[in-house]
Amino acid sequence: MTDTQQFCTFFLKEQFFGVPVQRVQEVIRYQEMTRVPLVPPEIRGLINLRGQIVMALDLRRRFEMEERPGSQLPMNVVVRTEDGAVSFLVDEIGDVLEAREENFEPPPETLHGKARELVRGVYKLQDRLMLVLDPERAIAGTETGRGEN
């Protein structure tokens, strides 16, 4: 018997990522944001999600990838956390996939930099690899108040 888990998937600069589907509150298109001065740059701002104020975190910036081209509007993957919802800004949304536990592996040695810190591991899917994002770590790094000086 093998355990399977469902993932909500998305793309960041051609990289394929997944978040456990039960963590995802919803996926919505680009929303206008109110920027928050003095905070780390990956916190892009606050969005109004039907009366709920949600912090938007740019995963490209979080992974220290190059900036999204100006013409491309990010999508919001709204994730539930203990401290309320947080929205991850991603390039594109993929399907909801089912992945088998047996295909899981911890991050490969070749994974460098931020990705190693923020990724829980890799699922070997048939046609591609899916990096599993650790939402807590993705959010936690922004708390240190690096925006302050």
Partner: peptide, 23 residues
């Protein structure tokens, strides 16, 4: 959210008449 509270410049946020968020 917790991440923004550490900066004691903001007391909270609110939603304005146009639906946008203001600090």
């Amino acid at each position: 959210s917790k991440q923004l509270k550490i900066i004691n410049t903001y007391a909270g946020a609110t939603i304005m008449g146009d639906g946008k968020v203001a600090l």
